[in-house]
């Protein structure tokens, strides 16, 4: 993975994954559509181009790890994990159903899933613990990735963890913020302004890479830069569109926590060319 990236194939895969997410959510009848669609390229490019992982051996000792701190976006992660063969795609339609390992928010135990999350703000701390443990074990080339929501940075614990990563100079940490500018109650700037977000992270001692979070080339370049950053943790500030890919879902806060109804699903899939 990681050498020349095939952007065309990835773009096609992203479209398939978006369609898959919408079908899963619609079938479940509930879930988080907007924030799942905004991070498709971030997660897909990570698994396709940056992360050292083996779907046949999810517990591989030398693997890189990915913690989805914004746990509500798990439909995107589930779809990507299934795409890479961690579990059969037939499992995806069991999302949020009784007895399914695809819980409404990620539950540890699912192959390829590194941590339970859902209560926001905890993922970066968990990632830091993994990064410190990797350093203790002298696994110097292991990288720990953590995806947070932008609204999630309202949580004080995120900044506690930001200080910890910086204090311990955790250059094996690469955090990503899905900067889609919306949270449940509305635009971040109205709910609680997080700006200037880039400068905040820089002042906390992080190397920040600002990219278009839907551009595979830009994302892959940023992952590569994060890999070679020494002496400090890296943050990829990925500008995204909430609900990306479906016109009537894009940029609407009300689509944060609802699933498409059957007619909406039909329209959405048509837009995606399904």
């Amino acid at each position: 993975m990681n050498s020349k990236i095939d952007t065309k194939t990835l773009e096609k895969t992203a479209k398939d994954i978006r369609a898959q997410i919408l079908k899963m959510l619609s079938n479940a009848g509930s879930g988080h559509t907007g924030g799942s669609l905004s991070c498709v390229e971030i997660i897909l490019s990570l698994y396709a181009c940056a992360l050292r992982h083996d779907p046949k051996n999810p517990k591989l000792a030398a693997r890189d790890r990915f913690v989805l701190s914004k746990g509500h976006a798990c439909p995107a992660l589930y779809a990507v994990l299934a795409h890479f063969g961690y579990f059969p795609k037939t499992e995806l339609m069991k999302l949020r159903k009784l007895g399914s390992s695809l819980q409404g928010h990620p539950q540890f135990g699912l192959p390829g899933l590194e941590a339970s999350t859902g209560s926001l703000g905890m993922g970066l701390s968990i990632a830091n613990g993994m990064a410190l443990a990797a350093r203790m074990d002298k696994k110097n080339d292991v990288k720990i990735y953590c995806l947070m929501g932008d609204g999630e940075t309202n949580e004080g614990q995120v900044w506690e963890a930001a200080m910890t990563a910086s204090h311990y100079k955790l250059d094996n940490i690469c955090a990503i913020i899905d900067f889609n500018k919306l949270q449940i109650d509305g635009f971040l700037c109205d709910v609680k302004n997080v700006e200037p977000i880039k400068e905040k992270w820089q002042s906390f001692g992080w190397e920040v890479f600002e990219v278009n979070g839907h551009d595979f080339k830009a994302l892959t370049d940023a992952y590569n830069k994060a890999k070679t950053t020494k002496g400090k943790p890296s943050l990829i500030l990925a500008h995204t569109v909430k609900g990306k890919g479906v016109s009537f879902i894009e940029n609407k806060a009300q689509w944060h926590g609802i699933a498409p109804k059957p007619d909406e699903l039909e329209r959405a899939l048509k837009e995606l060319g399904e």
């Binding site: 905890m122 701390s125 613990g129 993994m130 410190l132 443990a133 074990d137 614990q157 963890a161």
Partner: peptide, 14 residues
Amino acid sequence: QDMVSTAAGFALSG
């Protein structure tokens, strides 16, 4: 809070 979740990361790494 950071301490406890970081401990989880340590435990997840053995």
